[in-house]
């Protein structure tokens, strides 16, 4: 082989080698981009999720390690479940009832922290108003509308009840509202109410105060006694109210519903109507109102419902 031939062979093989390298590089590049494409199709890679793997173990080691962890896990889990189930079951009914009632009271305090009297419930056009009859507790048959009087206790400078007529209530500023009445059973109905704001009633008839000085509903509502108790004339139905809710502008002593005087089944002659609480609190046929320091008894609260029941 001549010097010349040798050199050309060397050059040829170098060219060949170069070609091979190029092909390899292209292949690698293609593979790499394939992998990248694959990565772009894997949410785990996109979000940079990591795996957490132990050192390699033999099958037996892995098995015994997992058995150990299983035993522990199932024991702790099982024991916790049993404590939960039997703990609750073995709790005396009275303790449970207490706990649940206290939870209602806790929820009530939380509600009061966030309560703002200026917030109003939505009002609707009166033509959307309807009616639904529900609840006849306290509406006993032997009731004579003509003999009805409203008795009011817990007033300033007065030991006996004040006796009022419907005209006394009608003499207060007349307010109309169309709001959604919500039953604790889960249904609701839009009603149109006419009556006097309970806050106007308080301003006029002056209940006792905490400090003993004259009440000032607008500027010093916190000076009023904290509760109001309301009962039907036969005292078979009774509700307790917190003062902030009864002072709400959408709490009325209502004598008309959907433009007509209240019917017997809707609580004639005078009932509460409010957007602040469930229907159970909107007592019909009010016979007596009392301002008080003590949390009043409440018919449905005594039967397991939330005393506050406030929206």
């Amino acid at each position: 082989m001549s010097e010349q031939e040798k050199k050309s062979t060397e050059i040829e093989s170098e060219i060949l080698l170069e070609k091979v390298r190029e092909i390899e590089a292209a292949k690698e590049k293609a593979e790499h981009s394939d992998a990248q494409n694959l990565d772009r199709d894997n949410t785990a890679v996109i979000l940079n999720e990591k795996r957490d793997l132990s050192e390699p173990l033999s099958d037996d080691e892995a098995k015994s390690e997992m058995s150990k962890r299983s035993r522990r896990g199932f024991l702790i889990g099982g024991a916790t479940a049993l404590v939960g189930i039997f703990g609750w079951r073995l709790l005396p009914d009275e303790t449970k009832q207490n706990l649940l009632r206290r939870t209602f009271e806790f929820n009530e305090r939380v509600s009061q922290v966030f309560y703002r009297p200026q917030r109003l419930a939505p009002e609707f056009p009166p033509e959307l108003a309807g009616a639904r009859v529900n609840g006849a507790e306290g509406l006993s048959g032997d009731f004579n509308l003509a003999d009805w009087r409203l008795r009011v206790g817990g007033l300033m400078n007065r030991n006996e009840d004040l006796i009022l007529t419907l005209d006394d209530i009608k003499a207060l500023p007349r307010v109309e509202m169309t709001t959604e009445l919500k039953c604790i059973e889960g249904w609701s109905v839009i009603c149109n109410w006419t009556g006097a704001r309970f806050s106007d009633f308080i301003a006029k008839y002056q209940p006792k105060t905490r400090s003993g000085s004259a009440p000032d509903v607008n500027n010093q509502p916190e000076n009023l006694l904290p509760y109001v108790s309301l009962a039907t004339p036969d005292e078979a139905y009774y509700v307790g109210w917190d003062m902030p809710s009864i002072l709400h502008p959408q709490t009325l002593l209502a004598y008309k519903m959907n433009g007509q005087p209240l019917t017997m089944e809707h609580g004639a002659p005078l009932r509460l109507a409010t957007a602040t609480k469930y229907g159970i609190k909107q007592i019909k046929r009010i016979g007596r109102i009392e301002f008080t320091d003590e949390r009043p008894a409440d018919y449905w609260a005594e039967r397991g419902y939330d005393w506050y029941s406030g929206h």
């Binding site: 793997l53 132990s54 050192e55 390699p56 173990l57 033999s58 099958d59 080691e61 892995a62 390690e65």
Partner: peptide, 8 residues
């Protein structure tokens, strides 16, 4: 040497 424990 055939297994690994993966923390899930």
């Amino acid at each position: 040497m055939a297994k690994q424990l993966e923390k899930k």
